[in-house]
């Protein structure tokens, strides 16, 4: 077994890690377009073993829809465009307002809403919204990431392997 690190990582393969001090509450994380392909839909079905006829054929909303939990990935991509935070996922608040149609393009946007320290670890919360081509809100998600598993009084001096920014694909 590889011995777990006692220090926090200062950088990794994707660049310099973001520190707690560098997180700016209120910061606009920008926006990007995400086209939800049928491949994305079916990959989510495979990953979660969640199959339903609505995901591959007709649904009450017309054509195929995505399993709504497909929305758990874009918020992470959004954060990774501005900040390099690895850590681990801590909290998720979400609301599904409209079905995500296969083939539709959503605009993903968001901002940093909070940062805090709890039990000697650092946390960042960011809020994400998805709008469809008609400007309607499709889903909202508010996520909290624990920035480091190692406690915050450990020095930040190691080089990690895994990073915060991830390929933007399901």
């Amino acid at each position: 077994m590889v011995e777990p690190s006692k220090v926090r990582m200062s950088d990794d393969a994707t660049g310099q890690r973001t520190t707690y001090e560098e997180i700016e509450v209120g910061k606009d994380l920008g926006s990007f377009e995400w086209t939800v392909t049928q491949d994305d839909v079916e990959r989510t079905c495979d990953l979660d073993q969640h199959w339903h006829e609505w995901f591959v054929g007709e649904s009450p909303w017309g054509g195929p829809i995505a399993p709504p939990q497909i929305q758990s990935r874009p918020p992470r991509w959004l954060l990774g465009r501005t900040y390099n935070v690895r850590g681990v996922s801590y909290k998720l608040d979400f609301e599904y307002l409209k079905p995500i149609m296969s083939g539709e393009t959503l605009v993903i946007s968001g901002h940093i809403s909070e940062k805090y320290i709890k039990r000697n670890r650092e946390y960042v919360r960011w809020d994400t919204m998805a709008h469809n081509a008609d400007g309607e809100l499709v889903f909202i998600a508010s996520r909290v990431q624990c920035m480091d598993i190692v406690e915050r009084d450990a020095p930040r001096e190691g080089t990690g392997i895994d990073g915060g920014p991830k390929p933007e694909r399901i």
Binding site: V2, P4, L47, S72, V88, L92, D162
Partner: peptide
């Protein structure tokens, strides 16, 4: 090794899979 660098004793499940 990537997990150990972050202070973990082993690789862990992806959060979105746990939630799924």
């Amino acid at each position: 090794t990537a997990a150990a660098r972050e202070g973990l004793t082993r690789p862990i499940a992806v959060g979105s899979r746990l939630f799924g």
